[in-house]
Design a binder for these strands. Structure first.
Lengths: 176, 176
DNA sequence: AAGGTAACTTGTCAATGGCTAGATCGAGGG
DNA sequence: CCCTCGATCTAGCCATTGACAAGTTACCTT
């Protein structure tokens, strides 16, 4: 066992994401992550404080990734939703954790900062797409995209291509 | 300690719902439920097999309650959504568990039956509310209501009255 | 009243999270 | 070149939890 793994924090984060994506957050445990990384059972906790700290780091990373995904946003409300859905497709573990605040330290400063940043990006993107009544439009678009994503993730939508199906669903409601 | 508690199954179910509503499913544990009911630590498992079995029972009950809530459905798509939101308000623990299939036995026959029943109710309610394009309309309505509910539950919607806010949001999208 | 069965208890084990004290490594100052 | 110091990791421990097996009790039928 070599001291100073060098990259343990990142390795644990990545492995955790794989485990969550494959088996859900309930299957995650620190000791297994330690075994997979080839370190002692207490090593992961050093970097994250505790299990919730690890999930906090994932949530923060998730909000940052989401902010990035919404950065170069299209002027189309529907395509904005597609981005949201695609984000959940590309980063299932992040998405899963982000919206389970009971699993991490929801009041951590980094969490609030990252979430606010993503929120501002969403707000700005909706504003350019639909100038009038920005707040309600944002809530409607967010709710639709979020709900669609959740239903898809919990297996309630069959096995159609999510992005295409979302376009059809959004076309029913949004005219933009 | 009296043998034959008489109503242990129901007591454990109810207590579990209270715990989940207050502290989330991660805080739930069988031994604490046993202590609260005044029985031995293994008693709850007798009725549910294991922890996932307990959550399975809650999920089934949740789908049945949802089916009931959608039974006498209004002809208005927006009010149908309000019912969905209100269901989540009234039965937070059920709602929480229902859409976390990784926590329970998602393939159990009772789960599938109850979920199908609720699905048929939803389908029927949407059909009467909006005759054309039933599938896409159902997905859109479900996604909007579900997403709104999830965002509200995770604290992303501030502290407005959920039902009223949903009416406003739905008014933005649905014309019916 | 005898036996059978549902409901519960008792005892045990392995896995996990978290804590503490100690070991090791690497970098920077003298 | 050595020494210290802080960051990183290890080793050992404990309480909690879920699961299981075997035994116990009470009700119910005949």
């Amino acid at each position: 066992m070599a001291y100073h793994h060098g990259d343990l924090r990142r390795v644990v984060l990545d492995t955790a994401q794989r485990v969550i994506a494959e088996s859900g957050p309930a299957a995650l445990n620190l000791r297994d992550l330690a075994r997979r990384a080839g370190v002692s059972h207490a090593a992961p906790a050093y970097h994250f404080g505790d299990k919730a700290g690890l999930l906090t780091a994932i949530a923060v990373e998730g909000y940052e990734l989401l902010a990035d995904a919404l950065a170069e946003a299209p002027g189309d409300l529907r395509e904005l939703g597609v981005r949201y859905v695609r984000f959940a497709l590309d980063h299932p573990a992040h998405f899963e954790i982000m919206f389970r605040p009971d699993l991490y330290h929801r009041d951590a400063a980094e969490v609030i900062a990252a979430r606010d940043r993503a929120g501002r990006r969403l707000r700005a993107a909706v504003r350019t797409a639909r100038p009038g009544k920005p707040d309600l439009a944002r809530l409607a678009a967010w709710s639709l995209a979020h709900g669609f994503t959740m239903l898809w993730r919990t297996g309630n939508l069959g096995d159609a291509d999510p992005a295409e199906l979302f376009r059809a669903v959004a076309g029913q409601t949004f005219t933009t």
